[in-house]
Design a protein around this nucleic acid. Structure first.
Length: 195
DNA sequence: TGCCCGATTAACT
DNA sequence: GTTAATCGGGCAA
């Protein structure tokens, strides 16, 4: 297990933090796994919730880095983000998929399936598997119930267009672990880079 | 106040 | 491949 992630880890450009999160271990109350897919959202990005300025929903994004921003998607699902960059830049990384490693029985029960690939492969699915709700929005990532551990070996990261958005669709700000079985979708003709 | 639509998912045909 | 579920945010009136 790697070292716990510090505030400094998140106090960088969201475009540096996002690929660096691939391979990181994320646990919530001891349940979770390895991050295999994320997307970066910057406040100058029309696809970002923070693009049009602060609101009650996105206020956490305008706060300091190293905190969780959780929002409800399509009125049904929860989605987990990590706030990045210096306070006020309103940038965050959406956690889109995990490779489940710890607490599988509880995740199976919460998700209602025993198919490992359906436990955490998607932003809504992983929040359900880890028990994340809007109550976690604003919580610090370096304190319970969150635990984040840096990767201990280099990984191969692929990049591609983000999923499910209608603005800035050309930006290659989705990052994934190359050849992972636990991606929410494959990467099309992806560019590979060591990280 | 009303209307449209979304950083999704699962169950359809 | 297509579509319902489900509701709060954002914008027009």
């Amino acid at each position: 297990m790697g070292k716990p992630l510090t505030r400094a880890f998140f106090s960088r450009s969201v475009h540096e933090v996002a690929p660096d999160l691939i391979g990181v271990i994320l646990l919530v109350n001891g349940v979770g796994g390895r991050i295999v897919e994320v997307e970066a959202y910057h406040h100058t990005d029309p696809a970002a919730h923070s693009f049009r300025g602060p609101t009650a929903r996105n206020a956490v994004m305008f706060g300091p880095p190293g905190f969780a921003y959780v929002y409800r998607s399509y009125g049904i699902h929860w989605c987990l983000n990590f706030v990045c960059e210096p306070k006020g830049s309103a940038s965050a990384v959406l956690i889109r998929a995990l490779e489940p490693t710890t607490g599988l029985p509880l995740m199976r029960r919460r998700r209602g399936t025993t198919d490992g690939r359906l436990l955490c492969s998607g932003p809504g699915r992983l929040c359900e598997a880890l028990g994340i709700t809007g109550a976690h929005s604003g919580a610090a990532l370096n304190a319970p119930p969150f635990k984040l551990f840096a990767r201990t070996a280099p990984v191969e990261v692929v990049a591609g267009p983000r999923i499910g958005i209608t603005k800035a669709v050309d930006k290659p700000w989705r990052y994934g672990l190359k050849d992972s079985r636990f991606l929410s979708k494959p990467f099309p003709a992806a560019t590979t880079r060591a990280a």
